[in-house]
Design a protein around this nucleic acid. Sequence first.
DNA 1: CTGAATCCACCTCGATACTG
DNA 2: CAGTATCGAGGTGGATTCAG
Lengths: 111, 111
Amino acid sequence: MGKVEYTAASAADGVEQAFKMLEGRWKLVILFHLFGGKLARFSELERAIPGISQKMLIQQLRQMEGDGIVRRIVHHQVPPKVEYGLTDWGQALCPALDALLTWAGQRAGAR
Amino acid sequence: MGKVEYTAASAADGVEQAFKMLEGRWKLVILFHLFGGKLARFSELERAIPGISQKMLIQQLRQMEGDGIVRRIVHHQVPPKVEYGLTDWGQALCPALDALLTWAGQRAGAR
DNA sequence: CTGAATCCACCTCGATACTG
DNA sequence: CAGTATCGAGGTGGATTCAG
């Protein structure tokens, strides 16, 4: 494929869209609980993330599902059982988040 | 250097703090206009970023200044002249933002 | 030119209670 | 267990006006 030139504006656009998908009080926290291909049930996440409400949990999950980051696995049975995991594209977030973590860490070292 | 173990919670914490510094409707856009060590005056940024208000511009700049991402260079003269640029730490953001851009790009390729 | 100060509409989030 | 419904407080961004 051809080389692509990014203007400041278009690059900002791309990153901004990516950012929007990860914005929200709880998305990152949820994401980290799902990294490594781990699956978690709704109630497991609820317990694993102190302070989150059901409303927020389901809302953030739904949005990320809509963005193609998270996948939802429904087991038709009683009592209901639903598991959440990352899509391949969701897993691909790791390096980016790692870079951010590195950046955050550089602050302490720099002063 | 020593190997560091991150729990899901602590990693989320670090990235979340980093994220908070970049959150906001305009910060990324501003950042991209400052990458590469470029300096820009207040009014230049205002013109370069259509749709932003003075309030937002100064607000986002101040916050990033407080976070140590942006530096403010004041030239004492009339008429007033103030330039903005990135700190070294701010420049170090590039790889992280690049990773995010890559990730965003992978979506189109995957489907 | 740079920036501070108001006023206001909107959206997000939290708490609570309820349903299949 | 998994999710929905509703209400209200607070924050955020936008427009406008004023000041050094």
